[in-house]
Design a protein around this nucleic acid. Structure first.
Lengths: 346, 346
DNA sequence: ATGTCCTCTGACAACGTTGTCAGAGTGTCT
DNA sequence: AGACACTCTGACAACGTTGTCAGAGGACAT
C-alpha cells in the first residue's frame, strides 16, 4: 500500500517540469545537457530536479532513443562463485564500467537449459551484447540473440560453430608444454586426469597431453587416463586406485583446478606427494604454500575476460569483420611438484 | 549499417500481428496467456510469432505495466573475483533465478564513490531492490533509492543507520570464540592482525578479540596489534617484525582471509609455523592441506547471501515490518594451527 | 423479429522518455 | 517600419508494450 504509493510517486519529467514551471521537454533538455536552454531556466530546472530527487528512467529512455541501446551486456559463466569465473567477471566488469555499461550475469552450471534460460532473459531485456562460456551441447539456442543483431562472444570455449567470436586459453599447447616439462624431468609414464570429453577445454587439454606423448614417442596407456566429472571422495578414490595399480604412473597431469586439488588429497592419502610428480592446468591461490609447491599451467583469466569484453564492444560499435578466434597464451609456473624426478626410472 | 538494420528489424507485436492478420493487442494477449482468445486464432498467432522469432521487449513491458516491476535486483559487492563475494553472489543468484529475477552486480572495491555510481546506475534502471555490501564512509548516498520505494538490504556489514535491513556474520562473538580457543590452549600473549577500523567487520572482530582477552583478564598490548590495510610484502614484513620483537606473541588471530594468508607466509619466512599458533577469521580453500592445517572461524557466506536475497524479496513483496538485523552464526573449524601450545609458557 | 447476453476482437490511451517541428520573442540590419 | 535571423521554448508524436473500453457477431430466449 504505502509501498505502491511510494513507488508511483517516483518523480518524472512532468513532475519536475510542473515544479519549475516549464514544459517537460525543457526538463529533458536540461537533464541530457542538450544545447539551447537559457542558463537561468536551466538552473531553475536543476534546482527543481534536485528538490524532487529526480532520476531519469533509463528503461523509458532507451525505449524511445533511436539507437536502441540499453547500455547493458549479459555474461553467462559456469559459476560466479568459482575463482576462475570470478576473475573473468571482474575483468569484464572493469571494461564495461569504463564505458558506462551495466553487466547482467548468471551461472549456468554447465547446463544447457539453464544457459538457454539466461540467454532468453538477456534477449528479452535487449542487452547490447552477450559474453558466454558455453556449456556442452547444442549451441544453436545460445545464438538466438545474434540473429537479431545482439553481439555474441564466446569465452573460454570455442565452439566448432564458425560465425562467432571466441576468446580462449591456449589449452592444447599449454597442456602439451606441461606434459613435456614432466617428460624433460625423466618421466615416461604420465597419468592424465581430466573432465569429461564433452567439455571443450577438457578435450583440448587431453589432445595437448597426447601431442606431448607423441612428440616424445611415448605410448598412450588408457589405464592411467581418467576423463570424467567425479568430485571429491569418488575422484580421490579413483586416483588412489591408479596409484596402487601394478604399474603406477610416476607423474600426473591434471586438467583442471578442482581435479588438481582432489589429486593432491589423493597423493597425500597415499603418502606419495613428494614422490609422484604433478602439474595442474590452471593456477589457484596458495598453490605456492603447499608442500610441495604446485607447478601449474596458469591461465590469464583476467586477460581473457578483458579481451572478450573489448571484442563484444567492438562488435556493438559496428565492427563486422569475420569472426575472430583469440588464443590467450598460458604460463608455466614451477613450484616443485612438477620438478620431482621419477623414483624408479625404467 | 547492416548492424542498425538488423537491430531495427527486431520484430515487434505489430510485425507478428501483421503476419497473423490480427490486431497487435491480440498478439499481446496470446503472448501473455490472457484468456479470451479463440484457440484457432491463438494458434495462428503463435505460428507467426515463432516464424519471426519474436521476443517480447521486457523493458517496454515493464514501462507500461502497472506494478512498475522490472524483475531485477542490484547487488553491490566488494569484488566479484574474491571467493567470499562470489559465494554470496551465487546464493543471491539462486534465490533470484527461482523467482525469475535478474541480478545486476558490480564491485565497488571498498570505494564509496564507486558504490555510489553503481547505486545510481541501479536506480536509473529501476531495479526492484538492492543488496549492498556497504563500503566504509557515509552511507546516506547508498540509500538514495530507498526513499523512492526501492528495497535495500545491507549485507556483511551493518551500518549504525537504523532504517535498513542487514544480514551479517556473528563477527564479534566468532572472533571472541577463536581467541578464547587460543587462550584455552595456554596462550597468554595473542597478537591481532586486522583490517583498518573503518571497515565495520574489522572493528567488530577486533572488539571480539578484546572481549575474549577481557573475559580472561588478559591485558591488551598494542605492540602486538596491527590494524591497517597493507597487502602482500609490506604486511608480511610487519608480521615478521612483530615475531622478531623482544616479547613476541605465542599466538596470532587474523581478522580476514588475505591477512591470514600473508601471515602464513610470514610465519614460514620465519620458520615458526609449527610453533606460533594461528586462527583466521573466514575459511578458504585448501586451508586443510597446508602444514599445519589452518584453524578458522568459518562464515556461512552462502547462508548470508541466501538470507539477504530472501529479505529483499520480502520487502519487495510489501513487507513493512521494522528493519531487521539478521546475525548469521559462525563455526570454529579446528585443523591444527589453532591447537599449537605455547612454546614458552610464562 | 427483437432484445439480451456472451465471446471474441480491435481502437485507443498511457507508461516516461526523446526526436521533430513550429512558433514566440528578441535583436539587427536595411 | 519591415524583413530577417537567431535563440529559446513547447506541442506533439513515437518507441513497444498493456489496460480499458466499446463494438462486432453469434447464440439464445422472448
Amino acid at each position: 500500500m504505502s509501498k505502491t504509493e511510494a513507488r508511483s510517486r517516483r518523480p518524472t519529467l512532468r513532475d519536475v517540469a510542473a515544479l519549475a514551471g516549464v514544459s517537460y521537454k525543457t526538463v529533458s533538455r536540461v537533464v541530457n545537457d542538450e544545447p539551447g536552454v537559457s542558463p537561468t531556466l536551466a538552473e531553475r530546472v536543476r534546482q527543481a530536479s534536485a528538490q524532487l530527487d529526480y532520476h531519469p528512467d533509463h528503461t523509458a529512455s532507451s525505449l524511445r532513443r533511436g539507437d536502441r541501446r540499453t547500455a547493458s551486456i549479459g555474461l553467462i559463466l559456469e559459476d560466479v562463485s568459482n575463482p576462475f569465473s570470478g576473475a573473468m567477471y571482474r575483468a569484464v566488469e572493469d571494461v564495461a564500467l569504463a564505458r558506462g555499461v551495466t553487466v547482467l550475469a548468471g551461472s549456468c552450471d554447465e547446463e544447457a537449459t539453464r544457459a538457454r534460460t539466461l540467454v532468453n532473459e538477456f534477449v528479452n531485456r535487449r542487452v547490447d551484447g552477450m559474453i558466454v562460456v558455453p556449456p556442452p551441447g547444442d549451441l544453436a539456442p545460445l545464438l538466438l540473440g545474434q540473429r537479431n543483431g545482439t553481439a555474441v562472444v564466446f569465452l573460454d570455449r570455442a565452439p566448432t560453430y564458425s560465425g562467432v567470436d571466441a576468446v580462449v586459453s591456449d589449452n592444447r599447447r599449454g597442456a602439451a608444454r606441461g606434459v613435456a616439462h614432466l617428460i624433460r624431468h625423466g618421466h615416461r609414464r604420465i597419468g592424465f586426469l581430466g573432465d569429461e570429453p564433452t567439455i571443450w577445454t577438457a578435450e583440448e587439454r587431453y589432445q595437448g597431453y597426447l601431442d606431448a606423448l607423441a612428440a616424445h614417442d611415448l605410448p598412450v596407456d588408457l589405464d592411467i587416463v581418467r576423463r570424467d566429472s567425479q568430485h571429491g571422495e569418488a575422484r580421490i578414490q579413483a586416483v588412489v586406485a591408479m596409484l596402487s595399480a601394478s604399474e603406477p604412473p610416476t607423474a600426473l597431469f591434471t586438467g583442471q583446478n578442482l581435479i588438481t586439488m582432489d589429486t593432491i588429497r589423493a597423493l597425500r592419502a597415499h603418502g606419495r606427494e613428494h614422490h609422484v610428480a604433478m602439474i595442474g592446468f590452471d593456477d589457484f591461490q596458495l598453490a605456492d604454500l603447499l608442500e610441495p609447491g604446485v607447478t601449474v599451467i596458469a591461465q590469464d583469466s583476467t586477460g581473457m575476460g578483458h579481451r572478450a569484453a573489448e571484442l563484444v564492444f567492438e562488435r556493438i560499435a559496428g565492427d563486422d569483420r569475420p569472426a575472430q578466434l583469440e588464443i590467450i597464451p598460458t604460463r608455466l609456473i614451477t613450484r616443485g611438484s612438477g620438478e620431482i624426478h621419477p623414483a624408479y626410472p625404467d
